[in-house]
């Protein structure tokens, strides 16, 4: 394997609120190679968005990165000054957000916004900027791009707006793109078009992607590796196919089993009991233990990541395919 473009080690982002310390991200590590897409899956409140924000240094007070490192092409990002970070954001690493209505400025044309994004890092003339912007819009599948540069965001449909946001993220050919649920707000037919395009773009441009989603099916058709988050930690990570076929962590196994496609129509679905714990009052030890049917007294201590081959899991009683029921 080549050297990773993005390397995250033991990253911890905590929020210091009046009610207590919220450990939104609590020690996660992963590597990302060039052109690789990693799916970051988890439920709301599991810390996946905060992870994305931490990678770009976008965490606002009362939160901050308290520990760990984020290395982008060998450069440590967590110790950079605000100005230095700014010069990298959008050029070396960029982000696509869930809601394209909120990310685009309604008062400016698409062309103006793309021009601003170009000017932030590069000195290109008006003509060259326009050509670059039009080229990227075409690349993400917007027809008659030149004319569309003069349009305002409200003149685009939801899917087209998200394409514009993706085009802006791609303007400087960043090494890494963090995509935070970019297709969640879109219709399935549009979602499929965009997923397909992103997969090709990653292959063509060599851009690595962290694809944050709550939808296992979306990620499974896009990402070559997966990380499953629960209560601020990665509980299981590995190659997508292996992880889905043969999950080790009971939470991953439960998520897969609870999908309607996994049960015969009309029959009850396998459900994970209970709800996600509040990050303010996490149970001692393994945070999944109260919802887990495999939990024992050992689970009152915190499991560390067990590595095997190219995968890892954080559980004392991992699920194995050969022995579904613990003896």
């Amino acid at each position: 394997m080549t050297t990773p473009v993005l390397s995250v080690k033991d990253l911890k982002t905590h929020f210091f609120t009046r009610a207590g310390v919220v450990k939104a991200v609590d020690g996660i590590s992963f590597d990302l190679a060039e052109g690789e897409i990693m799916g970051l899956v988890g439920e709301s409140g599991s810390g996946k968005t905060v992870t994305g924000f931490s990678l770009l240094g976008l965490v606002d007070a009362p939160g901050r990165i308290v520990e760990g490192s984020v290395k982008l092409k060998g450069t440590e990002l967590t110790t950079l000054s605000t100005g230095e970070l700014r010069s990298r954001r959008g050029r070396d690493i960029s982000m696509i957000f869930q809601d394209p209505i909120a990310t685009l400025n309604p008062m400016l044309t698409i062309g103006q916004q793309m021009r601003m994004a170009i000017d932030a890092h590069e000195r290109l003339g008006a003509r060259a900027s326009e050509a670059r912007a039009a080229e990227l819009l075409t690349q993400v599948g917007i027809p008659s791009a030149k004319e569309r540069l003069r349009a305002y965001p409200h003149e685009f449909s939801g899917g087209m707006r998200q394409r514009v946001a993706i085009a802006i993220a791609l303007l400087h050919r960043p090494a890494v793109i963090v995509a935070d649920e970019p297709t969640t707000a879109l219709d399935v037919s549009i979602q499929a078009q965009i997923l397909f395009q992103m997969r090709d773009l990653a292959r063509e441009t060599g851009t690595a992607m962290v694809w944050i989603s709550h939808d296992l099916a979306v990620v499974s058709s896009l990402a070559s590796k997966l990380a499953v988050m629960y209560a601020g930690r990665i509980v299981e990570q590995g190659p997508t196919a292996t992880l889905l076929r043969d999950p080790r962590h009971p939470y991953t196994a439960g998520l897969i089993a609870s999908l309607p496609a996994m049960a015969a129509p009309g029959t009850p679905l396998t459900q994970i009991p209970g709800t996600t714990p509040s990050l303010l009052s996490l149970p001692e030890g393994c945070p999944f233990a109260p919802r887990c049917d495999r939990a024992t007294d050992t689970c009152k201590t915190d499991p560390s990541m067990t590595h095997q081959d190219n995968r890892g899991w954080r559980c004392f009683h991992p699920v194995t395919r050969t022995a579904e029921v613990p003896a």
Binding site: S189, A192, Q193, L195, A217, S221, L222, A241, R245, A261
Partner: peptide
Amino acid sequence: SVPKLVLDADELVHF
């Protein structure tokens, strides 16, 4: 166009 959870393919699926 619905992404499906494919468990038995090592290659990414085309949809």
